[in-house]
Design a protein around this nucleic acid. Structure first.
Lengths: 237, 237
DNA sequence: TGGTGTGAATACTTTCACAGCC
DNA sequence: GGCTGTGAAAGTATTCACACCA
């Protein structure tokens, strides 16, 4: 199974595992079973074991997984054991919020270039870098060897920006614009679209009982059971 | 097939269809085939036809779909032909950005209540509404009969906020906090997590050719083919 | 003729259940 | 005894391909 193509849906879950494992480490867990991890995540033990099995045999029978070791393995698989430079395009309200977001750095992402269309924004200094005009995208991306772009421009400008990013060498795009981007197959795109998410949730908000949702439709973890007995896994605190 | 439970994955695609159809309408399209719509969306004609068939027979053979009529059908299915009040919890950087986002209103969502923990924020007036303390969540949600909540608080506070929202009667949550929420099955949750998205994309950013991505792994639409011949569908402009 | 709606086939994903190992 | 890793089964989702219709 090793080396066979790993389904993208599995890849998307790994960051959630990683996030949870890091939290568990902060809480002092040394070891965790797939069942316990599944509880936290609202997933299932079998799914977690299957997902991890694509990459290796990280567990120990009768014992579970070492939290610290599994974190290292996931970081390695996802290539998170290095720093990634990111280009941000768009410096309107949304772009500015992204530029000032403090969550990138602790996760190994650094906004290394910012591009704006508005001449008032160009030249501003943000986090020590100068905001550049969008005409510079290809050149700067190539010079800084950037592989990841974030698009925070209006929908009608997004495809053109994507084209430039790709032309410069970007192979991963986080797209905040409400439009489907057309990119070559070697480029990965993930969409962030709060409006679509709200619009799909309203489907379930009927007063009458239909569509019945009694079994849930699998969006998050079932309501909290008991707190997991953690003692045996924790280092004495 | 009508009335059988519709898969959630289908429901999640409907807003994307709607968004594209509205754009086509703006451009003057009167009619569209599943094949043409699929091109725009980077989907397939068969998938679009199957998805729509869960809700009715909206097309006409040899002709396609009426853009205006299909928009109305989708709005009806998703219950977007009304205004939805939304509660926003959290008024830090992210919460403020959400509160000032101009994209909700034109899509039928209105932030009708804002809750903050920080006493400096409580009492401020934003878009004509007063920022309230988080202790008021249940009462206000119930009084305003709000069904949708947006969580924009730190991860460690998110579960408690979710509990209060649900206690007040919320049945749909858009969660910006990087943590899996535990909610009862009648509540829908959608996650917005840019960090996880970046962290999953780095998997594909290997310099060596592995994991081979030559076939793509289905994240967006294949690179633009020809522009669709639109003339026959358009009203003369 | 051109394009829908949908059974049937295929492909993908999750879950079961258990041999095997610590 | 307890828990992993994984074949095999079950469950979902997508795609094919064509009868049918305007």
């Amino acid at each position: 199974m090793r080396n066979a193509a790993v389904p993208d849906i599995v890849i998307r879950r790994l960051p959630l595992y990683l996030r949870t494992l890091r939290q568990l480490r902060r809480e002092g867990w040394q070891t965790i079973s797939s069942e316990e991890l599944a509880q936290q995540l609202g997933s299932t033990a079998a799914q977690i074991r299957r997902d991890l099995s694509y990459f290796g045999r990280f567990g120990k029978q009768g014992y579970g997984y070492s939290v610290a070791a599994l974190i290292r393995e996931l970081e390695s698989v996802l290539q998170l054991d290095r720093l990634w430079n990111v280009a941000l395009v768009g410096y309107g309200k949304l772009g500015q919020a992204i530029a000032h977001y403090r969550g990138f750095a602790p996760n190994g992402f650094r906004i290394a270039a910012i591009f704006a269309k508005n001449p008032e924004h160009v030249g501003q200094i943000v986090n020590g870098i100068v905001v550049l005009p969008e005409t510079e995208i290809e050149r700067v991306i190539r010079e800084l060897d950037i592989r990841i772009g974030i698009i925070a421009v209006p929908a009608e400008a997004a495809q053109e920006v994507a084209n430039r990013l790709v032309a410069g060498g970007v192979r991963a795009i986080l797209n905040y614009a409400p439009v489907m981007l057309h990119v070559p197959p070697e480029v990965t795109v993930r969409e962030i679209d709060p409006i679509s998410m709200l619009q799909s949730m309203t489907y379930y908000l009927r007063e009458d009982g239909y569509p019945s949702q009694e079994n849930g439709h699998a969006t998050t973890v079932p309501h909290l059971k008991a707190t997991i007995a953690a003692e045996k896994h924790q280092v004495p605190s």
